[in-house]
Design a binder for these strands. Structure first.
Lengths: 259, 259
DNA sequence: CGGCGGCTTGACTGGTATCAAGTACCGTGG
DNA sequence: CCACGGTACTTGATACCAGTCAAGCCGCCG
């Protein structure tokens, strides 16, 4: 019942300034949005440049694979997935992103987004033109530090994923995935043991390199073993420590998605 | 016969300044080493700070997993692998790096290298303290641009790897790997069709998430199909287009390791 | 010469994909 | 309100790819 949709409703009912303060707390690029070291004029400039808190419905695109890279996005509420279409025409999900996490950095190399980003539910994001990030990061060492750290987390996350895909079996992958979600929810002040998945079994399978049926079977098996309780997308982690062991002990830390 | 060891010998025989010029041409962080926009004093500073062209023998470590992150490294000749030791104590190779490629960026998040880097053959690298990269990137937009692009390539490379691991079978993985190497060698002015592997079958298997035996079998099969000729580590690509098709068409571009 | 590590090949096994069927759920429209 | 269709999910049966075990070859080095 810690679903983010509750959050969205709350958000809509609030004056936007208040919502900003609430959600930007702990945001990676907070200095960009609330630069207390900058003068009034600059702040006003920012306000006009940033697209703070644009709302997307489930299935709507934040950016498309192939589009020119010009901005990064901070998730303020909700969640999204990024995926690439392979030459074979299949979808490959590369990551999921939740509130406070930053997406879009992959465009850094080719200046074109190598993936598309789609909202998994009603989701709000802040669009931040990359030129501004660059420019401001020259002035604000704190922000620069955050940017590097965020990039590092994204790299870590991918490396962790490579490890998962090349060394772990189906059960270990699913356990890793659940522990990772649990960890990320906890960091955001939600329950670590009880949450609602915002993605389908099929999307989990795609992400983890498993068939839908396999994901489903593992969920069932975990349930029989009293590791979790799963009713549709509602998940309860009954035995976190045992699940952590199953995951190969690599579910912790800041892995998967930049915070 | 385009082996890098020839290169090393050549290098040693040359006056070091000349060697620098030759190898730094096309180097990602060239502006850091030859900053023509900076005054003489600064250049002298750089000379004292940078560790240009340190040589490592096969098996020697450039940096260790867990060490404090303080520098990035540009490979000048030879090659190296980076790997993490998992909680289960297994080795997971995360990438290979060749001349002109940059490694060490993964430490950006935790300020600690999440992997170890080991020379696969006689290898020279330039050690560049990250504080210098940061500092100079503030002054040199060109360098900053390069840095971002390099980071982006590393992200691309990992994403590509995730795709390979979660969607491709053994043959596609090996084909992808060979095409990728071919592409990278070509970019460096070596033959795209004929080269010597600097890593063992076992290391290829580890990297691709396959057993050694599987790698060996795929090499044999490719040979029977006249796709390649493989004599130990000496590889000749006989039918690049067919191999590219086998790889799932995703072997191209700047994927795998930052240039 | 013998030993050892890297590589190859064969036989067998097992985990996961695939195919197939059935159920539950949800939004839509009557 | 219910009927309907579609999607998401589950579960079972079967097939196959790749891992594991085992044996042998080759080249290198002590």
């Amino acid at each position: 019942m810690k679903s983010n949709s509750d959050k969205n409703i709350e958000l809509k009912a609030m004056p936007s300034s208040q919502a900003n303060v609430m959600l930007c707390k702990g945001c990676t690029l907070d200095p960009l949005c609330h630069p207390n070291t900058l003068d009034k004029k600059t702040v006003d400039d920012l306000d006009s440049v940033f697209n703070r808190g644009v709302m997307y419905s489930k299935g709507e695109y934040i950016y498309h694979q192939g589009e020119t890279f010009d901005a990064v996005y901070v998730v303020r509420s909700g969640s999204l997935k990024t995926y690439a279409i392979t030459s074979g025409g299949e979808e490959q999900i590369t990551n999921f992103y939740f509130a406070t996490e930053l997406t879009g950095l992959n465009g850094l190399n080719t200046k074109v987004y190598p993936v598309s980003a789609v909202a998994l539910e009603t989701t709000t994001v802040c669009k931040i033109p990359f030129s501004n990030v660059e420019e401001l990061s020259l002035k604000l060492p704190e922000l620069r530090e955050n940017l590097y750290s965020t990039i590092g987390k994204e790299l870590d996350s991918f490396q962790e994923m490579i490890l998962t895909l090349s060394k772990k079996n189906a059960e270990e992958r699913v356990a890793t995935f659940l522990m990772n979600l649990s960890c990320r929810y906890k960091k955001r002040g939600f329950s670590a043991s009880s949450f609602r998945l915002t993605m389908s079994r099929s999307e989990i399978g795609n992400f983890l390199g498993l068939a839908v049926e396999t994901v489903s079977r593992v969920f069932s098996k975990f349930q029989k073993q009293s590791l979790i309780k799963a009713e549709g997308r509602e998940i309860e982690i009954l035995d976190p420590s045992r699940l952590a062991v199953m995951s190969g002990g690599m579910a912790s830390e800041g892995a998967h998605a930049a915070q």
